[in-house]
């Protein structure tokens, strides 16, 4: 029985939250902590930290964590599929329709208005992340070098992320060593 409500809960959160990612936190918290009482508020915060520091999609990682806690690996799979199901179905319907509609003039006109807005929406997180990542004059070479390597040298972001993990790990190990007696 729990598998059904596990799937249903994540299906509901996936189907009702527009804007994705962090817009889902309040709804998710209400469902998991207050409505079902599956996890405590403290566990929710812990899972959030883990889900954010792992690669991938935040809500999918939360689903994996909660599903695993309640029902093991099988629970994790059920919760994961639950949160992905609704978006996949929605987008498939839209994709099927959109591929028929894009020859109509008014649809094209609406998209001509939407495009600059979308580009702006991708520019905004550059500024907001700069604040939350504590960007300073000393470390701004990291995002700048990333930008130049991708745009000018056509290096894949994949390699830059791999290099950042290796570099951060070595730097952290160095700092650890220095602070230990």
């Amino acid at each position: 029985m729990k598998y059904c409500s596990l799937f249903g809960t994540f299906f509901k959160v996936g189907a009702t939250t527009i804007g994705g990612g962090f817009a889902m936190i309040p709804a998710l918290k209400y469902e998991l902590v207050h409505n079902h009482g599956w996890i405590t508020e403290e566990e929710f915060t812990n899972y959030m930290v883990v889900a954010q520091s792992m690669p991938g999609i935040f809500i999918a990682n939360m689903a994996t964590a909660v599903g695993y806690k309640l029902k093991g690996t099988r629970g994790a799979i059920v919760a994961l599929l639950g949160c992905a199901a609704a978006p996949i179905i929605f987008i498939l319907l839209i994709a099927a329709v959109a591929h028929q509609l894009n020859h109509i003039a008014i649809v094209e006109h609406i998209f001509m208005g939407l495009r600059p807005v979308v580009v702006a929406l991708i520019v905004v997180p550059v500024f907001t992340l700069a604040r939350s990542a504590h960007l300073t004059w000393c470390n701004c070479w990291i995002p700048l070098a990333t930008l130049l390597l991708i745009v000018l040298c056509h290096i894949s972001p994949v390699w830059i992320v791999v290099a950042a993990i290796a570099g951060g790990f070595l730097w952290g190990a160095q700092r650890n060593k220095r602070e230990l007696p």
Partner: peptide
């Protein structure tokens, strides 16, 4: 923690690109 701090900075560049 250091890895996450470096990654957060890298992500700014990736999105800017």
């Amino acid at each position: 923690k250091t890895v996450m701090a470096v990654l957060r900075l890298t992500v700014i560049g990736i999105i800017a690109a």
